[in-house]
């Protein structure tokens, strides 16, 4: 672990200003459940940490349009067990509770969850090349151990996946990420928040340098009737998803009025294709429809050897999650 200094900031303005003014390598820290590990492994070597836990981002509050605002420093546990979340966004609660462990969820924050870095073995091991950790050094996973790696949207530079469960549900729910930075505040739709690796796998998100997440907004529609978060993994708790599915349906009789499906464990970001969803509106909610939907959602999937199984697994998981959501 690097030597570093830490400042507790008292306002977002101060945080953003400090982050901007410093010429050093800065990181914001909230729960620290991922960052501290990465620092111990020398994957992240910040000179300076800005502790944002004192900022007033620790509330869950209603929005004027009947949506819900999750403050950036609300813990994952407090979010999952919040009455409004449980009632209106059970998909989100289930996704959060399927992730990590009780201890981690008590510490980890909602903003931090968005900023989790990949679990790629090579990213974590500074003895091996990794374009995400050290741009230009190469991707060890391409021809290495890639059982947990991406089948969709990967590039020859990087086949890592985003490890979050929460973000998969947020993607299905069309959440919006509120950020503030040097040039003011802005809203980023969740689907535009994370990036595909392309030529710059070192960039996980579209945040500008120094930008700080202040909240995550959920729209009114929570799909609280027909939903499922299915997490397929190697053990029933404390394991990252091989494939996860956040599925949400709005059904009229047996007709699909709205369908949202987002995948975890398969790409560098939660994988959702709204244009595919549009094609299925007004179709009958049947296993056949869901199979056709799954085919389209994972069209173009590519395996890299150890992870070939994920293609079949993703398809089966999508169908299972949609059927479960339908039966609810």
């Amino acid at each position: 672990m690097n030597n570093f200094s830490l400042t507790q900031v008292d306002s977002a303005e101060e945080a953003v200003k400090t982050a901007r003014l410093s010429t050093e390598n800065n990181r914001y820290i909230a729960g620290g459940t991922n960052l501290i590990d990465l620092m111990k492994y020398r994957v992240e070597n910040p000179d300076h940490l800005l502790d944002i836990n004192r900022l007033n981002f620790s509330e869950i509050s209603s929005l004027p349009d009947n949506g819900l605002r999750l403050g950036a420093t609300v813990t994952n546990a407090d979010t999952a067990y919040h009455q409004e979340v449980q009632k209106n966004y059970p998909l989100l609660a289930k996704a959060i509770l399927s992730g990590a462990s009780t201890q981690l969820r008590n510490m980890a924050t909602d903003g931090g969850n968005l900023m989790q870095r990949t679990r790629c073995y090579y990213f974590y091991d500074t003895a091996t090349p990794c374009n995400k950790r050290e741009p230009g050094s190469g991707c060890s996973a391409l021809e290495g151990f890639n059982r947990i790696h991406a089948i969709l949207g990967a590039s020859e530079k990087c086949i890592a996946t985003h490890p979050s469960d929460m973000c998969v549900a947020l993607a299905a729910l069309d959440a919006t990420v509120q950020v503030t930075g040097e040039s003011g505040s802005r809203s980023i739709p969740i689907l535009e928040f994370h990036r595909l690796p392309g030529d710059h796998p070192e960039k996980d998100t579209n945040l500008e340098p120094g930008e700080l997440i202040t909240a995550i907004d959920l729209p009114e529609k929570g799909f609280s009737q027909h939903f499922e978060y299915l997490k397929v993994r190697d053990r029933p708790s404390y394991a990252f998803a091989l494939v996860s599915v956040a599925a949400a349906l709005e059904i009229d009789g047996s007709t699909i009025k709205d369908i949202r499906v987002s995948l975890g464990g398969v790409a560098h970001k939660p994988w959702r294709l709204p244009e595919v969803e549009q094609q299925f509106i007004d179709q009958q909610a049947t296993p056949q429809t869901f199979e056709a939907f799954a085919e389209k959602l994972i069209a173009g999937a590519k395996g890299y050897g150890d992870n070939d199984f994920k293609i079949k697994l993703a398809k089966k998981s999508i169908v299972r999650a949609l059927l479960t959501a339908l039966e609810k």
């Binding site: 073995y121 091991d125 003895a127 091996t128 060890s140 290495g144 151990f145």
Partner: peptide, 8 residues
């Protein structure tokens, strides 16, 4: 990873 004999 048998390329470097390294446990991943």
């Amino acid at each position: 990873d048998d390329r470097e004999g390294r446990i991943m």
